[in-house]
Amino acid sequence: MLWSSGTIFVFVMVLLAVALRRVPRIATERFWFWGLGVVFPLAILASLTLYGLILGQRLAPVPAPDLVRVEAEARQWAWTFRYADAPGLVTHGLLHIPAGRPVDVDLTSVDVIHSFWVPRLAGKLDAIPGHVNRLRLSADQPGDYAGASAEFSGRGYTGHVFSVRAHAPADWQTFLQGMNP
């Protein structure tokens, strides 16, 4: 997107520069309006939107055989995580997930609106009181990933961060059994 935007910007600037030379030329509606005003943006936009929708569909929380479910509950200024595979297990500020498997996070909030954002694992999605939003995470590699709340939530907003730890399959089982891997 950066390259194509850059190209379009340069194209428009070149057009402008040529137009600024004091040589009056004939400007036709067919070229300037139908061509540049309508067909040119429509062609680019249609393909871009389509690409975005397909990508969006791929990131969507659709059913999968090896799906893992977790719950994330936000409050001013902390995160609490619960695990469908291990009822009763609760962690604070650190979300554990298996690497290499799709993970759906059910997001909600008990006070104001927050947003769950782990840049390297997914886009952001809001945690809204009274609603449950589902976000698909996928970590290819085990490791720690930084996460932050990304909706302004008052005084403690700056420090409202958390992490996600993606485990290799064996470590994940150890975690679920309540032991620190």
């Binding site: 428009v12 057009l15 402008l16 040529v18 137009a19 600024l20 004091r22 040589v23 009056p24 030329r25 004939i26 400007a27 300037w32 309006f33 540049l36 005003g37």
Partner: peptide, 12 residues
Amino acid sequence: FAWIGTLWQGRP
């Protein structure tokens, strides 16, 4: 493009 076209046909 209406504006750039206007410059195009004029002497800015």
